[in-house]
Computed example of a mutant assay.
Amino acid sequence: MEVKLIHNATEYQAALKRMRQLWGAAEGTPEYEEADILALVINKYEEEHYPIDDLDPIEHIKIRMEVLGLQPKDLVPYLGDKGTVSSILNRKRPLSLANIRSLHKGLNLSPEILIKEIILAA
Rank of each mutant, 00 (worst) to 15 (best):
I88M: 06
M65V: 03
S86N: 12
L5G: 11
Y50V: 02
H49G: 00
Y50W: 03
K4Q: 07
T29M: 10
H104S: 15
E31K: 12
R64S: 10
I63F: 03
D56G: 12
D74L: 05
A26Y: 15
D81H: 10
L109M: 14
Q71Y: 09
E46I: 10
E27W: 15
I63E: 08
L40S: 11
Y50L: 03
H104V: 01
I6E: 05
E59H: 13
L22P: 10
I52W: 00
E46T: 08
E117F: 04
H7D: 14
I42H: 01
L38M: 13
G69A: 09
L114D: 01
K44P: 00
I88R: 10
H7C: 11
E46M: 12
N43L: 03
I63Q: 10
L95R: 02
I52K: 08
E47L: 08
L70S: 12
E66T: 10
H7A: 14
E66Q: 10
R18E: 12
L75S: 09
D56Y: 13
I52Q: 07
K4M: 03
V67T: 02
L97H: 05
N43V: 00
T10E: 13
L103G: 04
P72F: 13
H7W: 15
K105G: 06
I88Q: 06
E46F: 08
